[in-house]
Amino acid sequence: MTTTRAARRRRASRRVRARRTLVATVAVALIAGAVTAFALTRGPAAVDETTAASGTPTSSPTPTPTPTPTPLTAAERLLATTSDPNACAVSFAGDGIALDPELQTRGVRYAALPLPRAEGRVFAGWYPTVADAQALTLSARVNGADLVSCTGREQVLHAGWTTPEANAAEDAGIPILMYHQFTQKPEGEDGWLRGNYAYIGDFDAQMAHIQESGFYLPTWDELSAFIDGRLFLPKHSVIITDDDADSSWLELAAPIVDARHLLTTSFVITSSRTEPTPNGFVLQRSHTHDMHRAGANGKGRMVNDDADTIAADLEQSAQILGAKEVVAYPFGHYNDTTKEGVRRAGFELGRTIEPGYVRIGTDKLALPVIRVNYGMTVDDLKAEIG
């Protein structure tokens, strides 16, 4: 009897525990459902503690996207290759122009500006603005006679073009002035070389005329392209040269062209002088290495030696000067053998002492000159070059 009652109590206790477990399970399920329903009505954003505390709903901050870097321009990439504060990336623009930018140096003359070609057109130079390029504004035209000027380490040059007909109609004859020695004596020097010595006062007045009249000063590569008929040069152009690199040139005349920013070429006999250029406006080019002396027949070695000997001499001269481009024939002596030696050495131009002007089609290895003698005034020069 006692055992039976105890068994009934145990069964009853189990039923109570079972009912409690069932109630707890149902409660948990109801709570979970309510939470889920609340989350669905509020959206995925969580409510932070501040919002819960204040009772003011807020949205979660939207992540800021990482900006895509702006690609560098060709000029900017070029500038990134140098730490030179005076470096200037010069870009080229214009109809038919597809040229990479070049590094130039601010305050130094432009080096090796390109001379583009186009079928049926003639290149007419580089200009700082589109308007100048269209008008071919002579005073604005930029070449290797000018100092590099930049804004923000960059500059854009615009191409000017003209027609072959307009180029021919210009009928430009380019004078190459040939000076030798200089004197401070207004009355000149005595001796058989008297005519070679220009009075320095006359030289300064002549350079002032060229500067103030706005003459265009072509580079030698421009002169070569002009001869080929693929570059327009205005009539108002002149090339200034000095033969021998005499001490009077270095001491008296070179400072004048430097002060006036006039591009000049000094033809150097490199067996006699190997000093660097006296200033940034003087190009040093070859007057041969050791051929400025008489050969077997009393004339210069350039018409006595064979083409290979001439070429070897010019190669030696070019190594010292760091440039080929143009040679001035000693004493003005040259012949076909001379020309062949010049070609073998890789020179493109040869300057004589024959009078005349360089025109389209002129023999590149027989360039004529305007000789400047003692006693020539600025008015005499104007008569020769305008």
Rank of each mutant, 00 (worst) to 15 (best):
residue 152 G to E: 09
residue 152 G to H: 04
residue 152 G to T: 08
residue 153 R to A: 15
residue 153 R to I: 09
residue 154 E to Q: 15
residue 154 E to V: 15
residue 154 E to A: 12
residue 154 E to T: 15
residue 154 E to K: 14
residue 155 Q to Y: 02
residue 155 Q to V: 13
residue 155 Q to N: 13
residue 155 Q to D: 12
residue 156 V to E: 15
residue 156 V to D: 09
residue 156 V to G: 12
residue 156 V to C: 10
residue 157 L to C: 09
residue 157 L to N: 08
residue 157 L to V: 05
residue 157 L to P: 00
residue 157 L to M: 08
residue 157 L to R: 01
residue 158 H to L: 00
residue 158 H to A: 08
residue 158 H to I: 05
residue 158 H to E: 03
residue 158 H to P: 05
residue 159 A to T: 02
residue 159 A to K: 05
residue 159 A to C: 00
residue 160 G to M: 00
residue 160 G to P: 00
residue 160 G to V: 02
residue 160 G to Y: 07
residue 160 G to W: 05
residue 160 G to H: 04
residue 160 G to D: 03
residue 160 G to E: 03
residue 161 W to H: 03
residue 161 W to F: 07
residue 161 W to K: 03
residue 161 W to N: 03
residue 162 T to V: 06
residue 162 T to R: 00
residue 162 T to I: 06
residue 162 T to P: 00
residue 162 T to G: 08
residue 162 T to A: 11
residue 162 T to D: 05
residue 163 T to D: 06
residue 163 T to E: 06
residue 163 T to N: 05
residue 163 T to W: 09
residue 163 T to F: 07
residue 163 T to A: 12
residue 164 P to M: 08
residue 164 P to D: 02
residue 164 P to E: 04
residue 165 E to F: 04
residue 165 E to H: 01
residue 165 E to C: 06
residue 165 E to N: 07
residue 165 E to W: 01
residue 166 A to D: 12
residue 166 A to C: 07
residue 166 A to M: 03
residue 167 N to M: 11
residue 167 N to A: 14
residue 167 N to V: 10
residue 167 N to K: 03
residue 167 N to H: 14
residue 167 N to G: 13
residue 168 A to N: 06
residue 168 A to T: 10
residue 169 A to T: 07
residue 169 A to N: 00
residue 169 A to V: 07
residue 169 A to H: 03
residue 169 A to D: 09
residue 170 E to K: 05
residue 170 E to R: 06
residue 170 E to D: 10
residue 171 D to Q: 06
residue 171 D to A: 15
residue 172 A to T: 09
residue 172 A to M: 07
residue 172 A to I: 01
residue 173 G to V: 04
residue 173 G to F: 07
residue 174 I to Y: 08
residue 174 I to W: 12
residue 175 P to D: 07
residue 175 P to E: 05
residue 176 I to Y: 04
residue 176 I to H: 02
residue 176 I to N: 05
residue 177 L to C: 04
residue 177 L to W: 10
residue 178 M to D: 07
residue 178 M to P: 14
residue 178 M to R: 09
residue 178 M to W: 10
residue 179 Y to C: 01
residue 179 Y to F: 15
residue 179 Y to S: 00
residue 179 Y to H: 06
residue 180 H to W: 05
residue 180 H to V: 02
residue 180 H to K: 00
residue 180 H to I: 01
residue 180 H to R: 00
residue 180 H to Q: 05
residue 180 H to C: 04
residue 181 Q to R: 13
residue 181 Q to W: 10
residue 181 Q to K: 12
residue 181 Q to C: 11
residue 181 Q to D: 08
residue 182 F to G: 01
residue 182 F to P: 00
residue 182 F to K: 01
residue 182 F to V: 06
residue 182 F to W: 04
residue 182 F to D: 01
residue 183 T to L: 02
residue 183 T to R: 04
residue 183 T to F: 12
residue 183 T to D: 10
residue 183 T to Q: 08
residue 183 T to K: 03
residue 184 Q to C: 04
residue 184 Q to R: 14
residue 185 K to I: 01
residue 185 K to V: 10
residue 185 K to R: 13
residue 185 K to M: 12
residue 185 K to A: 15
residue 186 P to I: 06
residue 186 P to K: 01
residue 186 P to Y: 13
residue 187 E to T: 11
residue 187 E to C: 04
residue 187 E to N: 07
residue 187 E to V: 11
residue 187 E to Y: 13
